[in-house]
Amino acid sequence: MNARRLVLGITTGATLLAASGAAYAARMPAGGLAWWAWPLLLFATTFLMGIVAVVGGIGGGVLFVPIVGGFFPFHLDFVRGAGLMLALCGALASGPALLRSGLASLRLAMPLSLAGSIGGIAGALVGLALPTRVVQVALGITVLLIAVLMWWTRNSARSEARAPDRWAMALGLHGHFHDPAANRTVAWKARHTGWGLASFFGIGMVGGLFGLGAGWANVPALSLLMGVPLKLALGTSGLAISIINTSSAWVYMNKGALLPMIIVPSILGVMTGARVGVRVLKGIQASTARNIVIAVLMLAGLRSLLQGLGF
């Protein structure tokens, strides 16, 4: 266990070191660092981010925008576009396995994702129209609120199967799935569908506005509000992100805000890091990892807020 803690410590330290390196490089004149150094630095940072994200039980997108936006020289417009693509790719890659195993429900994801898609498009349009400083301040506040939400809901994993509402009955939002860890079949029924739809519209809007993956909000909405078991909430959240972020990604692409030189190394870095993170995860206490993620988010959120306020 100590060795694994050491790995986690080194990972977190290296992430901060890479971010500091990027921050230092960002202050250099435009010609100070060759263009090819940036994708390499980005890959190294997102690789470490991928490890921390998996260990902390969140998507990489929520770490990417505040950290890369705060410490790299890229304009926030491009960072948000890359963040959306990052979250989209992660969700697309895991979608088929989640659907086949029954850990994600397509019928549950579809109505919620429709509300989220509309919110996501609205958010993307608003985000690209607002002045950068306003977006930075709003991003900082949002990321700090995410950290608080993660802290607040860290022990709220339980949900109970209660009577479904009329909408949930009409849409057939119930079923069962096999939990391989507990080796048992779990029955589930959704409730508060109307509130769930409203939440996903809002979450989609925040995701589109800041280019964040929305697992941090989807999971509590599904689990705590709609009464969906946590494992199904985690899987369905990933599927919903793949649908919601698709609509926002098209908006960013049509506006010309997707830069391959930022997007591709980031996607490869996070995905490679996530594979390593899965191995590290086996020996790490979830609560320790989550606390580290909360601390990183607080720092990144604070930096974004201060940047937006002109400090």
Binding site: R100, L106, F177
Partner: peptide, 28 residues
């Protein structure tokens, strides 16, 4: 209760199959 069987929800299996192909080709 039987474990989840994707064939009981055919749209779920079809969606998963098409998503797997689209994602694979897109990444490549």
């Amino acid at each position: 209760m039987a474990p989840f069987d994707p064939s009981s929800r055919p749209e779920q299996e079809a969606y998963a199959r098409w998503l797997a192909w689209g994602t694979r080709v897109g990444f490549a």
